[in-house]
Simulated assay, not measured.
Amino acid sequence: MKSQRITASIFLSAIASLAMSLSTLALAANTLDLNPEQRDRIRVEKDPAAINAVGGSYRFVKDDTLTIGIHPFIPPISTYATDARTIVGFDADLAQVIADSLGKKLELVPVAWADWPLALQSGKFDAVISNVTVTEERKAKFDFSTYRKDQLGFYVKSDSKITSLQEPKDIAGLRIITDPGTNQEKILLEWDKQNVAHGLKPITVQYYDDDAVKNLAIQSGRADAVFSVNAVQAYQAAEQRKTRLVGTVSGGWPRTAEVAITTRKGSGLADALTTALNDLIKSGTYTHVLDKWNLGSEAISKASTNPPGLPKL
């Protein structure tokens, strides 16, 4: 396997990066609803079944409010509106309909990814909705209510001749961009190892420090595909219309992984959240929220409380 690390320090790449970043920002301003008012945010009525499922001993951080910890730096999962204060995105919209279902106001509390476990355990918020994957290690300390597939995606240039990247043999000999130190890199390298063992051509893995330079590599033909978080790429593809999906892989490959609302272990809130999620799935509201952010491919058919998670390493 070959490996290339390319940074934006090269003068021409830096210029291209700046140009593409400005172009992307201009496009986003015209197409994204980043207004703090969020007039199109979906709302629902109280869900008596979900309210009744709240454990009798559970006490919300604030009596009339569902307080949610969220990491607002991963659009379209969550990001900031134009006022740099209001949090918008799929997780924020999901949090709103969950709060509505429980008959509560919603308060979103920004939290750094590394800090959410301790903040949740210390009672700073009732739950975390921030793309947290269910793992057996995390289940020892937290309860989970699943709401979305943990999915990675292969994306290529819109006019690429590549039509499908679904299994190891499909990537043989390709130049693929991925993210260092991640599950997607681990999967990609394992697939490459299997291919080489079977006499297939190795891949060339490329790592970029800047998203704009990454996009330029795809558009210019220096790379064949990007393998990264599907949610982020799906949204970019819908907004920019320069790339398309050619294959998805579970973030826990070869196992299936799901993202879940995270609560304190034994707090009595998880079953209520799972009930609310399943009622939102049945009503179609869940699908509506997913589709708003171009994440329909990550829908689950049923929410579960504490399903089997990814195994401990």
Rank of each mutant, 00 (worst) to 15 (best):
E190Q: 14
Q206K: 11
T135Q: 00
T135Y: 03
P168L: 02
E45A: 14
P110Q: 02
S228W: 04
I203Q: 11
L94R: 03
A114R: 06
E298D: 15
T274L: 08
T256Q: 15
S57R: 11
Q4E: 01
E258R: 15
A212M: 05
R175K: 13
A28V: 08
A212G: 09
E190R: 12
A14F: 12
I42H: 12
D33M: 04
L277Y: 01
D159M: 02
A276I: 01
A260Y: 03
A119W: 04
I176T: 08
D179E: 13
P75D: 11
Y80A: 03
K169H: 14
D209C: 00
A53D: 05
A223F: 01
M20G: 08
S304C: 12
K312N: 12
I177S: 02
P308D: 03
S145T: 09
A140I: 09
V246G: 07
G284W: 01
L165S: 09
D100W: 07
A299L: 10
G181T: 04
G123A: 03
G309W: 03
S3L: 06
F60V: 09
Y147N: 06
W116Y: 13
K157G: 08
N52R: 12
L66F: 06
A49C: 10
A14D: 12
T146Y: 07
T133G: 01
P110H: 08
R244N: 09
Q219E: 14
G55N: 10
T178M: 07
G247E: 00
L118S: 15
W116R: 02
I42W: 12
V249N: 02
K242Y: 00
E45V: 01
L120R: 04
V134P: 04
L120W: 04
N215P: 08
W253Q: 02
L200N: 10
L66R: 00
E37K: 11
R5N: 13
D279P: 10
R43F: 07
E258M: 12
H71M: 11
A257E: 02
I10E: 15
D210S: 11
K169R: 15
I218F: 01
L66K: 03
Q4K: 11
R85A: 14
N230L: 12
A276E: 05
W113N: 13
F11N: 15
D192T: 00
R85K: 15
I187Y: 05
L152V: 02
A172W: 03
L277D: 06
A272L: 02
T135K: 05
E298V: 02
Q233C: 03
S220D: 13
P311Y: 03
V88H: 07
F11C: 15
N195I: 03
M20D: 11
T263S: 03
A26H: 13
D143K: 01
I281Y: 08
S164F: 05
N278L: 08
L245T: 01
D271C: 01
A238I: 02
N183P: 09
N294G: 08
L106M: 09
R59N: 13
A49Y: 09
R138D: 10
L12C: 14
Q184S: 14
T256S: 15
E37P: 05
I300E: 12
I176W: 02
D64W: 07
R148N: 10
S122G: 00
F60Y: 04
K242E: 15
L94Q: 04
A16P: 07
K169T: 10
R43L: 10
I187Q: 00
R148Y: 07
L200I: 10
A16Q: 15
T243F: 05
G89W: 06
L188T: 01
L313G: 12
